[in-house]
């Protein structure tokens, strides 16, 4: 196996182990954290704002879990090269190492949360559907998208640290416009079109269709996040290579 790939896998596993060993509750946090996160939104939307309808809770939780995977990966990747400053001053590393470790680590945690979500859905009374078999495919599409956006963020933030504010607010805007709280298909006209430019919208819709509606996702619409993912991945890798030996000079 390629040396760097082996190193990335080893480091991601080691980081997960470290994370699990921290705090009194350790690995239990992997369960508690998503539960608390989802609980907060449940209280706001289902209890306080009395939003709802049939299956509102599973519908909301699915959106949240899927979004959080994307959001955390991009945010953490954005600062990853700066955090690795000490390391890259001592040894040469291809800089994609830093975001790659973060992406793998978050993806492993996502899989864990996904299992929890599936358990919850079963307890809630959802029925296992044939469409669940294709979940890995949608997962792969989202992985491509979040990987690409994370690589671009990782490459650009060290060059212009001010962009971090743009990333933070951009992610927040994307979150509110991603249809985690409302059904994007209800919006018509230019606003609906604008909303669908957010590549996470088709992804979240696909997850919901397969998990909750026993529907096949809209494959044509999913081409957009796949295309965006492929383009950002190429751009991110190009930038990280271009500035490979420049990042260690930045203070």
């Amino acid at each position: 196996m390629n040396h760097w790939l082996e190193l990335i896998l080893y480091k991601a596993r080691a980081d997960l182990k470290v994370e699990a060993s921290q705090g009194y509750l350790g690995m239990l946090w992997w369960v508690l954290e998503p539960v608390l996160y989802m609980g907060a939104f449940y209280i706001i939307f289902a209890v306080a704002m009395k939003r709802g309808g049939e299956n509102f809770v599973p519908w909301l939780l699915t959106g949240l879990v899927v979004w959080k995977w994307f959001d955390t990966s991009v945010r953490m990747s954005a600062t990853s090269i700066r955090m690795g400053k000490g390391l890259m001053a001592q040894v040469y590393l291809p800089k994609a190492f830093f975001p790659a470790v973060i992406i793998l680590r978050n993806s492993a945690k996502f899989l864990f949360t996904l299992v929890l979500l599936l358990l919850f859905l079963l307890l809630y009374g959802m029925e296992v559907s044939w469409t669940w078999l294709l979940l890995p495919l949608v997962m792969l599409m989202q992985f491509l998208l979040l990987g690409g956006v994370s690589l671009v963020a990782a490459a650009l933030i060290p060059l212009w640290p001010d962009l971090m504010l743009v990333v933070n607010n951009g992610l927040m805007l994307m979150f509110f416009l991603s249809g985690v709280f409302f059904d994007t298909s209800a919006l018509q006209g230019w606003l609906g079109t604008l909303l669908r430019l957010n590549p996470m919208v088709p992804v979240i819709d696909a997850w919901r269709a397969m998990l909750l509606g026993s529907d096949w996702p809209d494959w044509v619409w999913l081409a957009w996040p796949v295309l965006a993912g492929a383009l950002t991945t190429l751009l991110g890798l190009y930038l990280l290579r271009r500035f490979d030996r420049y990042y260690p000079r930045l203070s």
């Binding site: 040396h3 082996e6 190193l7 080893y10 390391l87 040894v91 590393l93």
Partner: peptide, 10 residues
Amino acid sequence: LSGMLLGAPR
């Protein structure tokens, strides 16, 4: 981990 960072195969 340290050995791999220094370039030695695992």
